[in-house]
Structure formats: C-alpha cells, structure tokens
C-alpha cells in the first residue's frame, strides 16, 4: 500500500517539501556572509516563542514567528555594531531562549516533555492541517523575499561597504534577511526541529557550492538538494520508524561527505593533469617589466 494514502503522510511530505525549498534559499545568504550559525541561534530563541504559545494557548507556530523575528532583529543590531562584547550578548540570548522556553513549558498546564521534544527535534507526523496552512503562507513569504530580492541581498551579503557606497538600503536589507531567517526557522521547526534547523539551511548550500561556480547556481542547487534530501529523509524516517529531523539531517550530511570526497578526488586528478601543462599566471616580475614597457 502506498504511503500517500495516509493523510498524515501527505501532510508530512508537504511540510518536508516547504522546508527543503525555504531553508537553503535563506541559508545561501547566511553562508555567503559567513553567518552559518545564525539559524541555530534563532532556533534557540524560537523555543521561548513556542512555550509562550503553550502558556497562553495560542498557536505555537505564530508565537514562535513573533519571538524569533524579534530575536533576529536584536541579533542583527548587535552584529551591525560590530563590538566584541556582542559575542557574549548573543550567547546570553541563545541560552536564555532555550532555558526560558523549557521553563515556560513547565509552567503551562497540559503539556509534556514529549511536546517539548517534538519542537526541539521535529515531529512531522503530528503536524496538523492548520499548522501546515501557517507554514505554507510563511514559506511563500520566505521564497518571495529570497528570490525576488536576490540582487540586493547578494550585493549586501557579498560586500556591505560597496552596497553602502552605492546607496542601497543596507540596514533595511539586513533586517529583512534576519527576519526572513527567523520565519524560516519556524517553518522548519515542525519538520527538523529547532535544534536541527540550521543544518538544513547550511548543509545543502555547502554541498552545492562545491560543484557550482556561481551564486545563483549554488542557490538553485542548494534548493534542489534541500527538497530531495528533505523528502527522502521524511519517507525514510517513516519506514525506519525514526525521528524525521534526525533522518533528514543525517542524510544531508551523508550527501555532503559524498560530494566532498567526490570533488576532492576529481580535483586531484584534474590538478595532476593541469600541473603537466600549467603556466603560472603571475610570472616573474622581470617578464612583467618587458610587457609593461613594450
């Protein structure tokens, strides 16, 4: 019997698809500006948002969006100031987020550790249709921002000073990116969990960039990998009866290692071949004198 006849499985696969699309689409910008762990920090903060949802009986996905977006804005403001003390401020926020979340969940009636674990490590199969509707709307917003604002986000992440001199709205773009990352965290938390969110933002991008030459190809390759890995992991976790988040992330790491080993092997062969016919581009300065004078 096909797994697609189960309603919960269809919901699970839709959730996995949305995460596979959005996480690398945002992650490519975070990797580009070497802030790959930003998603992890936001994930910590989002737990407090989830707990607030339980405490006041609101939808945890919505409270998580609000709290993690606020947290992301604060992180960006700290980053923009560029002080070394900002490092400690971030640590306080991240661990405060986890501790506050656990504390608040303990205070709210009718929730258990099982519930907490489902947010920390993902629980695709318990995702409801109403959850999924919210996730789909948020995912659409993430895709609109990351795909349509690509030239501007690329310019800012690639060289913030050049973007400033060019008159681009650098502060606004940085805030938009931070909030988009926060929204992506909440999109992904039901699927891979808050503690593993960052993996799906970073690993498919890191895999794609080993074979891609450009930013757009890395981005599209990362998204394609993200979708494939997320869907395969979700299906695999069902048959193996293991947690979907862990299955997806382990699969992503396996693909990353395979591609890394493969490209290293190819490069070594290609490198050996190139070395035999190589001409050094920056040759001796004496030759340059001749060229320059001639």
């Amino acid at each position: 019997m096909s797994i697609f006849t189960f309603d919960f499985m269809i919901r699970a696969l839709l959730g996995a698809l949305l995460v596979g699309l959005t996480a690398p689409a945002v992650g490519v910008y975070l990797v580009q500006r070497r802030m790959a762990l930003l998603g992890d920090g936001i994930g910590h903060i989002a737990l407090t948002g989830v707990a607030l949802g339980f405490l006041f009986s609101w939808a945890p996905v919505l409270t998580a969006v609000l709290v993690s977006a606020a947290g992301a804005v604060v992180i960006e403001l700290i980053r923009a100031r560029g002080r070394t003390s900002g490092d400690v401020a971030l640590a306080v926020m991240f661990y405060g987020g986890i501790a506050g979340g656990v504390l608040l969940i303990g205070l709210s009636a009718g929730t258990s550790n099982v519930n907490l674990l489902s947010y920390l490590f993902g629980s695709l199969l318990t995702t409801s249709w109403s959850d999924l509707v919210i996730i789909a709307v948020l995912a659409a917003a993430v895709l609109v921002v990351t795909l349509l604002l690509r030239p501007w986000l690329f310019a800012v992440c690639h060289d913030e000073e050049f973007a400033t001199v060019s008159g681009l709205p650098v502060r606004l773009l940085n805030l938009v990116l931070a909030v988009t990352a926060a929204v992506t965290v909440t999109v992904a938390m039901r699927v891979v969990g808050l503690l593993l969110v960052s993996a799906l933002m970073v690993i498919p991008v890191a895999t794609a960039q080993q074979v891609a030459r450009g930013f757009v190809t890395t981005m599209l390759g990362g998204i394609a990998l993200g979708v494939t890995i997320s869907l395969s992991g979700a299906v695999g976790s069902y048959y193996l009866n293991v947690a979907s988040g862990a299955a997806i992330v382990v699969l992503a790491i396996a693909v990353f290692l395979l591609v890394t080993a493969g490209t290293a092997l190819l490069r070594r062969r290609g490198g050996a071949a190139a070395a035999r016919t190589a001409t050094t581009p920056d040759l001796g300065l004496d030759d340059e004198h001749v060229m320059a004078d001639g």
Partner: peptide, 20 residues
C-alpha cells in the same frame, strides 16, 4: 572582504554595480 563564503561568477559580482 569576508563576505564571499559562497562562490560567485565575475558577472554576478559586476552586476551588483548596476543596482545603484
């Protein structure tokens, strides 16, 4: 600067210049 964690082609970088 440090903001080059992801590869970019020559054209992609140059294209940032027209955004101004």
């Amino acid at each position: 600067g440090a903001g080059s964690g992801v590869p970019a082609t020559v054209r992609e970088v140059v294209r940032s210049g027209v955004l101004a």
